[in-house]
Design a protein around this nucleic acid. Structure first.
Length: 184
DNA sequence: AAACGGATGGGCT
DNA sequence: GCCCATCCGTTTG
């Protein structure tokens, strides 16, 4: 599913406006994987990971940021895919405004490449709020939209970023040669 | 260009 | 009390 989500569009219709991006980098977190929040059973934080697939799992990290995931396993299993980078497609000015408001030096410009090239960054740029934790991504303001036309790309597989346990597992995927990746 | 440390607070043992 | 699926501004080479 982490590979299958590459190329898919993430769309958010918010009161401020509409933003959209193409998913270009993902990581899988599996039920038997020590880096997975769900690996040691259900808690109040990871509850939606054990719910139906196609819903949003959003969690708070490092005291300042949120990460957005898609639940990808049948109820009870506890698996999700972290969305790590988007290629900005729509609402770039709104993305810019949201990103700048979270910075100290607010006059500086953020390049298109850096708008959504990281899990914390894309959550800010897309205006994804913690209140969207658990929503169905098939319909609603925050949704996944599968592309109407297929286009070819090659998938690069690497190890995941920012974890200790399970760091050797090949569970990070990105579109090869895409310029909007967090780290190559 | 890379390396480093501070910010900042919820989750879990 | 330690850990953490991160980002940013500053320092160093």
């Amino acid at each position: 599913m982490a590979k299958k989500l590459l190329g898919t569009f993430l769309v958010h219709e918010s009161p401020e406006g509409r933003t959209a991006g193409r998913i270009v980098e993902t990581e899988a977190y599996l039920s038997d994987d020590p880096a997975c929040h769900a690996a040691r059973g259900e808690t109040s934080r990871n509850r939606v990971m054990f719910g139906p697939p196609g819903h949003a799992y959003i969690y708070f990290i490092y005291g300042m940021y949120h990460c957005f995931n898609v639940v990808t396993a049948p109820p009870g299993k506890g698996e999700a895919v972290l969305i790590r980078s988007l290629e900005p497609v729509e609402g770039l000015e709104l993305m810019q405004k949201r990103r700048l408001s979270h910075r100290q030096r607010k006059h500086q410009h953020i390049s298109e490449k850096e708008l959504c090239n990281g899990p914390g960054k894309l959550v800010i740029a897309m205006g994804i709020h913690r209140s969207l934790n658990g929503v169905n991504l098939e319909r609603g303001d925050l949704r996944l939209q599968f592309p109407k036309e297929y286009f070819q790309f090659k998938i690069k597989t690497t190890t995941r970023i920012g974890i200790r346990e399970g760091a050797e597992l090949p569970l990070r995927f990105y579109i090869r040669d895409n310029p909007y990746i967090s780290k190559t």
